[in-house]
Amino acid sequence: MIDGPRIPPASGGPARHLVVLLHGYGADGNDLIDIGRHWAPLLPDTAFVSPNAPEPCDQAPMGRQWFPLSMIDMDLIADGVRQAAPVVDAFLDSELASLGLTDANLALVGFSQGAMMALHVGPRRPAPIAGIVSYSGMLAGPERLAEEAVGKPPVLLVHGDADPIVPVMALHGAVPALAEAGFAAEWHVSPGLEHGIDGAGLQLGAAFLRRVLV
């Protein structure tokens, strides 16, 4: 079972919602947990957790990976996401059970490879989740989405137009694919942003989560 840093609800009371932050390739849970600290005052009844991916990273000795990513090959990415999904699902099941929550109380937030995981796992959970936020991500295997989706949670896609790692065309490809599969997708492109998350993206993510976590 994977694990990582956690932040309890800022209210000091029991969690009413759970936000799971899935980090990018070569990082670990500490890379994204600060987003939870930034959002905690705005989502006071929400618990945050950022699990470490299960594998040591092929190309970053101290980092982790959800799946190998030696090249940007869409078929390999789709296979990698699919193979890593059961580990994420098992973690989500455990976290929700420990908090006494259900999928309806869950939101997934991912960056880069973690966003690929969020966009794959979220729609295929056994019951609809509250929402998905994808930063600098990619929708793997879009041709299977409509057939395999159990729920169709609202999605927010945020990307920089100067991203050299996952080009912004990934966002522009995901938006129509999500719409065709019946998802309500919002999106924002940050001018001049490379592979990262800026202040505008954080604000949009917080506002989105405040709407869907009800």
Results as ranks from 00 to 15, higher is better:
133 V>W: 03
141 G>D: 13
50 S>E: 07
131 G>I: 12
118 A>S: 15
74 M>T: 09
83 Q>R: 15
38 H>W: 13
149 A>C: 03
117 M>F: 06
116 M>I: 13
125 R>F: 11
49 V>M: 08
55 E>R: 13
106 L>E: 01
73 D>A: 12
108 L>V: 07
74 M>D: 14
54 P>V: 11
155 V>N: 11
157 L>R: 04
125 R>I: 04
68 P>M: 00
125 R>S: 09
82 R>E: 15
56 P>S: 11
42 L>Q: 10
39 W>R: 02
98 S>E: 11
144 R>Q: 12
87 V>I: 14
62 M>T: 14
107 A>K: 06
94 S>T: 12
65 Q>N: 04
51 P>M: 09
132 I>A: 11
154 P>D: 12
37 R>P: 04
157 L>D: 09
163 D>C: 09
126 P>S: 14
36 G>C: 02
122 G>R: 03
38 H>Y: 12
158 V>G: 10
94 S>L: 04
143 E>D: 15
120 H>P: 03
115 A>L: 01
75 D>W: 02
42 L>W: 11
141 G>E: 01
76 L>V: 09
80 G>Q: 06
149 A>D: 05
104 A>I: 03
143 E>W: 13
46 T>Y: 15
151 G>R: 01
90 A>S: 14
122 G>W: 08
79 D>Y: 02
41 P>S: 08
35 I>R: 05
127 A>K: 12
136 S>P: 05
26 G>Q: 06
159 H>Q: 10
81 V>Q: 07
143 E>F: 12
96 L>R: 07
88 V>D: 00
34 D>L: 00
122 G>C: 10
81 V>M: 08
141 G>L: 05
150 V>P: 05
112 S>M: 05
126 P>F: 12
148 E>R: 05
82 R>K: 13
35 I>S: 11
43 L>W: 14
114 G>N: 07
67 F>N: 01
